[in-house]
Computed example of a mutant assay.
Amino acid sequence: MKRPFHPAWNLIRRITAIAVCLLCVNTLLPLLQAEGAGIQDGSESLQSLTIAQSTAVLHSDTMAPDTVQQFAREQALILGSEATGKRWKQAELDFYPLGPGTRSWLVYADVEGSPVGYMIISANDQGQLLLSEYGQGGQRPYSSSLLDQALDKQQLNLQELSTEGGELKWGYAPPLLAYWKVERPHAAAIYIDATNGDTLPEGVLKELELDVDAQNTKRPHSMTTMSGQTTVIPSVSPQDSILSVDSMQLQPSFNPADNLLWITSKAVSITGVKALSEQWKKDKTIVFSANHQNVFYGGPLPVSGYQIWRNDRGTAQLQYVAIGGHNSVRRFVPLQTLIRDGHFYAFKP
């Protein structure tokens, strides 16, 4: 036989139970939020290709640290200083981390759902943020339609892979390799170039991933955990002066494979965009090739334009050169990166 409790004791028990429940909710809430943020590891369900979005205006670190968002907004304002690029200033910026250990973020810029352009921001070993590349308009890496086309060639279906436990991951490898990794439950992973849809060599990418893992173990102590992903929180170096950009100088794009005369030509010396202009004035077409490193560029690629970044005194500070634009995304990348890794070939088509 159960002994009934005194009414006062029953009241104490109820208050205690409510307090315990509140304590449990407060304890579990951070865990539930962390679990919900697990998408930040750079992977996404194959069943759904959408990722929760955040904007630079909100300064939410859900998808990128505040320092990355601040830097992205600064670059968008610079790109918006050019007359035809003013929409950059009003654009909403959506951030997507590009895989654990890469210290890179994809940034889509849109105005009322209309694409303005994209940026990829990376942190170097010193923790400084860099604008690795950018593009204008609707041409963007990691396009879901491009992924669908690439998977169709492999006779793969996202829905079926998802049901079987497959996984899709976004990756970015320096200097300029944007790719997807499609993990299959009973077969080797497939790597796909996210700028042109080409299948990438599995061995090269596996070795690259091992290198990234090894480098992560040697990172300095200026590291923090962001929703389960270990990443460097970079510091933004103050700029010497306010920057602005000149108008884009664009050339018609082409497919280097359609005319292989460039292979037999001698590499030309390109030290700045002035040399590019001189070659184009001679009615010559220019190809960039990184030779054995072409897998990291998606090349060989047509050189299809440039844009100069200047300080408030009008002095050129940065030179970005456009590569691609025919069978791949047109990407504006630092000229010095191209000079370091490859050669330019000019020929009359």
Rank of each mutant, 00 (worst) to 15 (best):
V111F: 14
V111Y: 11
G113L: 08
G113S: 13
S114D: 11
P115C: 15
P115Y: 13
V116W: 03
Y118A: 11
Y118L: 11
M119I: 06
I120M: 06
I121F: 13
A123W: 00
A123G: 08
Q126K: 13
G127A: 11
Q128C: 04
Q128R: 05
L129A: 08
S132A: 13
Y134N: 05
Y134C: 04
Y134Q: 02
G135Y: 07
G135N: 02
Q136C: 05
G137N: 10
G137M: 09
G138A: 14
R140Q: 10
P141N: 02
P141E: 01
Y142F: 15
S144W: 02
S145A: 15
S145C: 09
S145I: 14
S145K: 14
L146F: 01
L147M: 10
D148H: 12
L151T: 12
L151F: 13
D152S: 12
D152Y: 01
D152K: 07
Q155E: 10
Q155M: 07
Q155P: 02
N157E: 11
N157W: 07
Q159L: 09
Q159S: 14
E160S: 07
S162A: 10
T163S: 13
E164L: 15
E164I: 02
G165N: 03
E167C: 11
E167G: 08
W170L: 04
G171C: 05
Y172V: 00
A173I: 10
A173W: 04
P175R: 04
A178E: 01
